[in-house]
Protein backbone atom coordinates (compact mmCIF):
# COMPACT_ATOMS: atom_id res chain seq x y z
CA UNK A 1 0.00 0.00 0.00
CA UNK A 2 1.47 3.34 -1.08
CA UNK A 3 0.39 5.99 1.36
CA UNK A 4 1.22 9.67 1.06
CA UNK A 5 -0.22 12.37 3.30
CA UNK A 6 0.86 16.00 3.00
CA UNK A 7 -0.17 19.43 4.19
CA UNK A 8 1.38 22.15 2.03
CA UNK A 9 1.53 25.87 1.38
CA UNK A 10 2.56 25.27 -2.23
CA UNK A 11 0.03 25.08 -5.06
CA UNK A 12 -1.59 21.66 -5.28
CA UNK A 13 -1.25 19.91 -8.63
CA UNK A 14 -3.84 17.12 -8.47
CA UNK A 15 -3.05 15.42 -11.78
CA UNK A 16 0.65 15.15 -11.04
CA UNK A 17 -0.23 13.56 -7.71
CA UNK A 18 -2.65 11.10 -9.29
CA UNK A 19 -0.07 10.08 -11.90
CA UNK A 20 2.48 9.52 -9.14
CA UNK A 21 0.00 7.45 -7.15
CA UNK A 22 -0.53 4.92 -9.92
CA UNK A 23 2.93 5.03 -11.52
CA UNK A 24 4.44 1.65 -12.34
CA UNK A 25 1.82 -0.40 -10.50
CA UNK A 26 0.28 -2.72 -13.09
CA UNK A 27 -2.07 -4.26 -10.52
CA UNK A 28 -4.06 -1.04 -10.13
CA UNK A 29 -7.32 -1.24 -12.04
CA UNK A 30 -9.10 1.82 -10.68
CA UNK A 31 -8.27 5.28 -9.37
CA UNK A 32 -10.99 7.42 -7.83
CA UNK A 33 -10.22 10.97 -6.82
CA UNK A 34 -11.94 13.85 -5.13
CA UNK A 35 -10.62 17.36 -5.73
CA UNK A 36 -12.04 20.09 -3.51
CA UNK A 37 -11.82 23.53 -5.13
CA UNK A 38 -12.10 27.04 -3.90
CA UNK A 39 -15.37 28.63 -4.99
CA UNK A 40 -15.84 32.36 -5.40
CA UNK A 41 -19.29 32.19 -3.79
CA UNK A 42 -20.50 31.14 -0.32
CA UNK A 43 -23.61 31.86 1.77
CA UNK A 44 -24.79 34.41 -0.78
CA UNK A 45 -21.57 36.42 -0.89
CA UNK A 46 -18.75 36.77 -3.39
CA UNK A 47 -15.55 35.45 -1.86
CA UNK A 48 -12.31 36.86 -3.23
CA UNK A 49 -9.76 34.92 -1.20
CA UNK A 50 -9.49 32.23 1.43
CA UNK A 51 -6.98 31.49 4.15
CA UNK A 52 -6.65 27.99 5.56
CA UNK A 53 -5.25 27.49 9.03
CA UNK A 54 -4.35 24.12 10.55
CA UNK A 55 -2.93 22.54 13.69
CA UNK A 56 0.52 21.28 12.63
CA UNK A 57 1.19 17.84 14.03
CA UNK A 58 -2.40 17.00 14.92
CA UNK A 59 -3.50 17.45 11.30
CA UNK A 60 -1.06 14.86 9.98
CA UNK A 61 -1.95 12.44 12.79
CA UNK A 62 -5.68 12.85 12.16
CA UNK A 63 -5.23 12.25 8.41
CA UNK A 64 -3.03 9.18 9.05
CA UNK A 65 -5.72 7.76 11.28
CA UNK A 66 -8.46 8.32 8.71
CA UNK A 67 -6.41 6.75 5.92
CA UNK A 68 -5.47 3.78 8.13
CA UNK A 69 -9.13 3.22 8.93
CA UNK A 70 -10.00 3.28 5.22
CA UNK A 71 -7.23 0.74 4.54
CA UNK A 72 -8.71 -1.50 7.23
CA UNK A 73 -12.16 -1.37 5.67
CA UNK A 74 -11.27 -1.77 1.99
CA UNK A 75 -8.60 -3.48 -0.07
CA UNK A 76 -6.56 -0.55 -1.40
CA UNK A 77 -3.31 -0.26 -3.35
CA UNK A 78 -2.56 3.40 -2.85
CA UNK A 79 -3.91 6.48 -1.10
CA UNK A 80 -2.79 10.07 -1.47
CA UNK A 81 -4.27 12.87 0.64
CA UNK A 82 -2.84 16.34 0.01
CA UNK A 83 -4.34 19.42 1.68
CA UNK A 84 -3.49 23.06 1.09
CA UNK A 85 -2.99 25.63 3.82
CA UNK A 86 -2.22 29.34 3.58
CA UNK A 87 -3.79 31.75 1.08
CA UNK A 88 -5.96 30.44 -1.74
CA UNK A 89 -7.63 32.13 -4.71
CA UNK A 90 -10.80 31.02 -6.49
CA UNK A 91 -10.11 28.01 -8.80
CA UNK A 92 -7.28 26.76 -6.55
CA UNK A 93 -7.48 23.11 -5.47
CA UNK A 94 -7.90 22.87 -1.68
CA UNK A 95 -7.68 19.14 -1.22
CA UNK A 96 -7.00 15.96 -3.17
CA UNK A 97 -8.07 12.51 -2.05
CA UNK A 98 -6.91 9.89 -4.54
CA UNK A 99 -7.45 6.18 -3.99
CA UNK A 100 -6.17 3.28 -6.10
CA UNK A 101 -7.43 -0.28 -5.99
CA UNK A 102 -7.80 -3.32 -8.22
CA UNK A 103 -11.52 -2.68 -8.83
CA UNK A 104 -13.60 0.50 -8.75
CA UNK A 105 -15.95 -0.38 -5.88
CA UNK A 106 -13.31 -0.27 -3.16
CA UNK A 107 -11.76 2.95 -4.49
CA UNK A 108 -15.12 4.76 -4.77
CA UNK A 109 -16.14 3.89 -1.23
CA UNK A 110 -12.75 4.60 0.34
CA UNK A 111 -12.43 7.97 -1.40
CA UNK A 112 -15.82 9.17 -0.16
CA UNK A 113 -15.13 7.81 3.33
CA UNK A 114 -11.81 9.66 3.56
CA UNK A 115 -13.18 13.04 2.45
CA UNK A 116 -16.24 12.69 4.72
CA UNK A 117 -14.03 11.96 7.74
CA UNK A 118 -11.52 14.64 6.80
CA UNK A 119 -14.32 17.24 6.78
CA UNK A 120 -15.29 16.56 10.39
CA UNK A 121 -12.07 15.27 12.00
CA UNK A 122 -9.01 16.97 10.53
CA UNK A 123 -8.13 20.28 12.22
CA UNK A 124 -8.34 22.77 9.35
CA UNK A 125 -10.22 26.08 9.45
CA UNK A 126 -11.25 28.28 6.54
CA UNK A 127 -11.46 32.03 6.64
CA UNK A 128 -13.09 33.86 3.75
CA UNK A 129 -12.37 37.34 2.51
CA UNK A 130 -15.20 39.32 0.92
CA UNK A 131 -15.32 42.90 -0.41
CA UNK A 132 -16.52 44.14 3.00
CA UNK A 133 -14.41 42.07 5.39
CA UNK A 134 -13.44 38.62 6.59
CA UNK A 135 -15.26 35.77 8.32
CA UNK A 136 -14.49 32.30 9.63
CA UNK A 137 -16.50 29.61 7.87
CA UNK A 138 -18.99 27.79 10.13
CA UNK A 139 -19.05 24.00 10.31
CA UNK A 140 -21.94 22.41 8.41
CA UNK A 141 -24.41 20.02 9.93
CA UNK A 142 -24.59 18.13 6.62
CA UNK A 143 -20.91 17.21 7.05
CA UNK A 144 -21.70 15.50 10.37
CA UNK A 145 -24.51 13.58 8.67
CA UNK A 146 -22.17 12.51 5.87
CA UNK A 147 -19.70 11.17 8.43
CA UNK A 148 -22.39 9.40 10.45
CA UNK A 149 -23.41 7.28 7.43
CA UNK A 150 -20.17 5.32 7.76
CA UNK A 151 -20.70 4.41 11.39
CA UNK A 152 -23.48 1.86 11.08
Amino acid sequence: MMKEIRVQFETLEPYKEIDALRADNKAIGAVVNFIGLMRDFNEGDTVSRMTLEHYPGMTERALEKIVDEACGRWDLMGVRVIHRVGDLDPLDPIVLVAVASAHRGEAFKACEFIIDYLKTRAPFWKKERMADGERWVDARHTDDEAEARWQS
Binding site: G36, L52, H54, Y55, M58, H83, I94, V95, I115, L118, K119, T120, R121, A122, P123, F124, W125, K126, W136, V137, D138, A139, R140, D143
Partner: peptide, 10 residues
Protein backbone atom coordinates in the same frame (compact mmCIF):
# COMPACT_ATOMS: atom_id res chain seq x y z
CA UNK B 1 -3.98 21.00 25.22
CA UNK B 2 -5.58 22.76 22.25
CA UNK B 3 -8.93 24.52 21.95
CA UNK B 4 -10.56 25.26 18.62
CA UNK B 5 -13.91 25.69 16.84
CA UNK B 6 -15.50 22.85 14.85
CA UNK B 7 -13.28 22.09 11.86
CA UNK B 8 -14.01 23.33 8.33
CA UNK B 9 -11.36 21.84 6.02
CA UNK B 10 -11.73 19.89 2.81
Amino acid sequence: VAFFPPVTGG
